[in-house]
Design a protein around this nucleic acid. Structure first.
Lengths: 215, 215
DNA sequence: GCTTGTGAAATCTTTCACAGCA
DNA sequence: TGCTGTGAAAGATTTCACAAGC
């Protein structure tokens, strides 16, 4: 295979999962086999080897993969080596949960702004930032150089918020509002719907250990 | 194809998405074509037809699918016709966000219990229930007949909580804690990791409109 | 005429199995 | 000897394209 190849989508969706397992192993062990990594990630060892082979030949036969080195390679290939600046729109419970979520800084995601339409919320502190009024969004986003926006507003507000974000130059949006938003083609959008998670869980009443997303 | 067949996993993961689109259309239109449904769900029309064909032949040629009827059929096939009783463990911001999330009752998910280890939180009201102490978990779960548990605790507490839930007879667990928990084979587990969502979003800086989960 | 339902083709993904190297 | 890297086989999923039915 070798380093230059385009990575299949299915592989991309598993790499962050490997990253999590590797992060947990890092410091405890120097080297990890495809077998162990696969077991902890809940997938097949051949799959791990094939997935990693799309990045290049970073393992050592007879030994395994060097943990910190592999972490760096995956991060690099996923474009996660630099830091990302995240803005949260909607300072309700979910917005606050995300703003103060400790796992973000460790992965290079920094919450640089939070917004809310409710004047009572403006000025409050969530995580490490102050809540700003939605009216100031375009200006604040530009000032602080936000890369990614997370929508945690009620459904009726979501589309208008998305429009404003796109106008302000945001290129990646993670939408938690329980409604679909429409964005232009150059914007990456991921819709996270917990209702759907619960429905799928209900359907699979039997052992389906699947890592889906990643709080 | 016809009704009796086993539904492919990929189809199962899309049915709740169709359900959401259909729910939004219901009341506005009587009938929907595979084309329209596909467009709103962000997938291909042939895919919608193939997916729905696993449920049986519920469409009408030249017309489309009857919206309320199709909703009932999908719900029935996913085993979502009855109500589900949900318990939330961890009454922090995320737990509170879920407890008061309006989309749950509409989909038949009722939050019947909430727990927290912090004595200061016990007795508070989240959504429509009172927060109970973690020590009372087994008893309260049985009393209220919870089917599904959602873990929204900090990472270090997650495994112990999962163990208690399993002992108490819970068969489906949705885990939001940023760590993997291990459960016996008869328990359905879904791990939702927002960090992974953000990482994948960062990688696909170009138009990828994907519905993943469902808040 | 319009839209479903579905075999068949094309594509993508996973798994196997083993040669190759430390 | 042990474990990676990878072609090739097997399996799953998606897309095509069109006959069938309203």
């Amino acid at each position: 295979m070798a380093a230059g190849r385009r990575i299949p989508e299915a592989t991309v969706s598993r790499l962050p999962l490997y990253l999590r397992v590797l992060g947990e192993a890092n410091g405890h062990i120097d080297t990890i086999s495809s077998e162990t990594l696969a077991h902890r990630a809940g997938v097949n060892a051949a799959q791990v080897r094939k997935d990693l082979s799309y990045l290049g030949s970073y393992g050592t036969r007879g030994v395994g993969y060097d943990v910190p080195y592999l972490i760096r390679q995956i991060n690099r290939r996923l474009g996660l080596d630099g830091d990302r600046r995240v803005a949260i729109v909607g300072a309700g419970n979910l917005g606050q949960a995300l703003a103060s979520y400790g796992g973000f800084p460790a992965r290079g995601f920094h919450v640089v702004a939070a917004f809310d339409a409710d004047p009572a919320k403006v000025g409050q502190t969530v995580g490490t930032t102050r809540v700003e009024p939605v009216a100031a969004m375009a200006e604040v986003l530009r000032e602080r150089g936000a890369d990614i926006a997370v929508i945690t507003t009620p459904a009726p507000a979501a589309q208008a918020v998305a429009d404003t974000l796109v106008e302000a130059g945001i290129r990646s949006i993670l939408n938690f509002a329980p409604t679909t938003v429409v964005v232009p083609d150059h914007v990456a959008l991921r819709q996270v719907d917990l209702g759907i998670e619960l429905q799928i869980l209900s359907f699979y009443q039997q052992t389906i250990v699947t890592s889906v997303a990643g709080l």
